[in-house]
Design a protein around this nucleic acid. Structure first.
Lengths: 101, 101
DNA sequence: TCAACATATCGATATATTTCGATATATAAT
DNA sequence: ATTATATATCGAAATATATCGATATGTTGA
């Protein structure tokens, strides 16, 4: 699992994606509760992220997918909802790479 | 001095620029000595970086300029040579920002 | 002053990213 | 079955980035 620092840096080259990543750090603070789920254990649903970011649904879906492919977030599907939460392991690995840069 | 995390991430979104930054960490290891200057106290001249990276002179100049504008490196001019060295302060600030992400 | 050299800037083209609306897919509710 | 809802994918246009060769600028040395 060698981290691709360039790929992760591309994710972080966009303010909306940086915002999403930091919002997901503390969902209670940044998002309304999920109606169907009483918690944020698996992260936040795409629609909440879309509303908060103010971007189109397709753009958000695309951003989340690239963040997922870079290993920064992980999806969980419950019925028709997809929840995304941070993948702290990759984030920590990126921190360590940056510490060596 | 609020660090622009997006701007710095853009710099790091390219392998050649990441390489340059890491090479500059240990010039003795990565570059031949300067003919006119017996040291790397002010960093490494553009032409050495160009040779090592294998990119055109204009591309290297452009990269170094964007790295400079992001605050990651600092130039020193001696005669016709420009030497670039790392700006550890900004690099450290970026590390700290990433630690909070 | 002039030629040679190091670097910066300009202009151009190819590729990548951003962002959207439209459409497809999957699930849930009626 | 049909409709409504959530998300994903597709196709496209606008903008940005990558990268080069050519040219300009500044400096040194003959």
């Amino acid at each position: 699992m060698d981290l691709d620092i360039v790929e992760i840096s591309k994710v972080l080259s966009n303010q909306a994606r940086v915002d999403i990543l930091t919002w997901l750090k503390d969902p209670e603070k940044h998002f309304p509760p999920h109606r169907e789920l009483g918690h944020f254990n698996d992260g936040v649903c795409v629609d909440h992220i879309r509303r908060k970011a103010g971007l189109s649904q397709s753009t958000i879906s695309h951003y989340l997918n690239m963040m997922y492919k870079a290993g920064l977030i992980a999806p969980t599907r419950y019925g028709k909802w997809t929840y995304f939460k941070r993948n702290e392991e990759t984030i920590q690995q990126y921190r360590e790479e940056i510490n060596n840069i």
